[in-house]
Amino acid sequence: MTRDAAVDAAALPIRPLTPDDLDLVCHHRHAMFLEAGKEPEDLARMTPAFRAWLAPRLNDGSYFGFVAMDGERPVAGIGLMEIAWPPHPLHPDQDRRGYVLNVYVEPAYRQRGLAHALMKWADNAFSARGLHYAVLHATDMGRPLYERLGWSQTTEMAKAVQAGRDG
């Protein structure tokens, strides 16, 4: 049995993200979207822009999260943010929400509870910041896990807005 196949998620340490994790988070985001079926050409444009966006946020702590480690090897990660949002029926006394993004587990480490563990760490981090409501955008692969953890569908819709078009 390989080391990867024998790994027990409960035995792997989880540590906070640091600014030194810039390459790792960019790699995880790129791989996540590639596996979700996004076009490589789009990702080639997105990844450098994301890197430029992420670097100052990792440095100032406005993008935070956790990494699961197998020895010196990072094998899973989660990104978190606190976002401004007007009071809402689901959080009538708060003007902010937690936001979960970039949940990724390296393929050899999947189905061992790492994403579940990272989501629990996210809950604790949001709670420690006084955030009582959080959102995420799920891939098809991640949706069953999030549903098992109590996340539910919302009424959100989206569209790309074309600049310079009238009416």
Results as ranks from 00 to 15, higher is better:
94 Q>Y: 01
152 S>Q: 15
49 A>H: 05
20 D>Y: 01
67 V>R: 03
133 Y>D: 06
129 R>T: 07
47 T>N: 09
137 H>F: 06
45 R>S: 05
97 R>F: 06
66 F>I: 00
121 W>C: 11
5 A>D: 12
89 P>N: 11
107 P>Q: 04
52 A>I: 01
46 M>S: 02
165 R>A: 09
163 A>R: 15
152 S>Y: 10
152 S>I: 07
62 S>P: 08
117 A>P: 00
62 S>R: 13
22 L>G: 04
81 M>C: 09
116 H>W: 14
76 A>W: 08
47 T>I: 11
118 L>C: 06
37 G>C: 14
133 Y>L: 13
66 F>Y: 15
105 V>C: 08
72 E>W: 00
4 D>A: 15
101 L>M: 14
163 A>Y: 10
110 R>G: 01
125 A>V: 03
121 W>S: 10
74 P>E: 08
50 F>R: 02
13 P>D: 08
22 L>W: 07
124 N>C: 05
48 P>I: 05
70 D>T: 04
16 P>H: 09
70 D>C: 08
47 T>L: 10
3 R>K: 08
89 P>F: 13
125 A>P: 03
147 E>A: 15
14 I>Q: 13
41 E>V: 02
98 G>S: 11
156 E>I: 05
58 L>A: 11
43 L>G: 03
133 Y>S: 09
167 G>T: 09
81 M>Y: 03
52 A>K: 13
13 P>V: 04
38 K>R: 14
164 G>R: 07
7 V>I: 14
92 P>F: 05
76 A>N: 08
165 R>V: 15
30 H>N: 13
166 D>R: 14
89 P>I: 10
53 W>G: 04
143 R>G: 03
26 C>Q: 11
41 E>P: 00
132 H>A: 03
46 M>E: 12
5 A>C: 00
127 S>M: 05
158 A>I: 12
125 A>Y: 04
155 T>Y: 05
158 A>N: 13
20 D>V: 03
59 N>M: 06
98 G>L: 10
58 L>H: 10
27 H>D: 13
5 A>F: 00
61 G>F: 02
96 R>Q: 15
41 E>H: 07
25 V>W: 09
114 L>E: 04
45 R>F: 07
164 G>H: 09
23 D>L: 04
101 L>G: 12
144 P>S: 09
70 D>A: 13
153 Q>E: 14
36 A>H: 06
20 D>P: 01
98 G>V: 08
114 L>D: 05
152 S>H: 15
106 E>I: 01
41 E>Y: 00
10 A>S: 14
122 A>G: 09
44 A>L: 09
137 H>T: 12
18 T>M: 02
148 R>I: 05
72 E>N: 04
5 A>P: 00
155 T>M: 09
167 G>Y: 06
138 A>W: 10
56 P>R: 10
135 V>Y: 13
59 N>Y: 00
120 K>R: 14
11 A>V: 00
151 W>M: 12
15 R>P: 03
90 L>E: 15
8 D>Y: 00
115 A>Y: 06
6 A>M: 12
36 A>M: 05
35 E>S: 12
19 P>G: 05
115 A>I: 06
33 F>S: 01
151 W>R: 14
50 F>H: 07
127 S>E: 11
99 Y>G: 04
110 R>K: 02
84 A>Q: 10
43 L>A: 04
103 V>I: 15
143 R>L: 14
114 L>R: 06
130 G>E: 10
